[in-house]
Write a protein that binds this DNA or RNA. Sequence first.
DNA 1: CTACCGATTGACT
DNA 2: GTCAATCGGTAGA
Length: 202
Amino acid sequence: MRSKPLPRTFYDRSVVQVARELLGKQLIRKTDDGITSGRIVEVEAYKAKGDPACHAARGRTRRNATMFGPPGHAYVYTIHAKFCFNVVTQPEGEPSAVLVRAVEPLDGIELMKHRRSRDKLLDLTRGPARMCEAMALDTTHDAIDLTNDDRLWITDDETYQIKRSQIGSSPRIGISSAQRLKLRYFLRENEFVSGPRWLSHA
DNA sequence: CTACCGATTGACT
DNA sequence: GTCAATCGGTAGA
């Protein structure tokens, strides 16, 4: 039995709305080695317009081509010889995406420990590249359709409800431009949120 | 082809 | 807290 993927209509909305509503959802990854899953606790929005930090800000390239495609697909890219996982939002032609920066490990914790060569729970999925390593995600998973693929999808955890007051926001991490845009969203007081502590209560 | 650099991480003081 | 490793993507010659 497989949990139900979020429908296309969930992703086909403004990037900020999708980003905030992704908090608390479950990211599920299936490989021959088994299933790993985690609760999304930290995300960042990258907007099509007025956002110089967005990869698509300077036009389409081979790397960011997935962002120009339909919503609900994975956008995976390399950075510093590591990987980051994003979700494409908005209609085609409005290249926006949500970066998933951290999840709280749920299923497959032993498998994650093995992939990460780390034993501490906090070191498994706290940070975008760590999360990708724990869930065995790389650029071969770029452009996967998250609404229709047995390897990777996101599902609603109906038993886990988020109150608006639980969501914090801050400038995005590792971004020098557009500091005034508070496009990072996270679950306050969740220990698996990455970044400096002073940014985790904003 | 070369040069530069980043939506990061882990080791170290 | 500081800092260097890392390597594919991109722009430019």
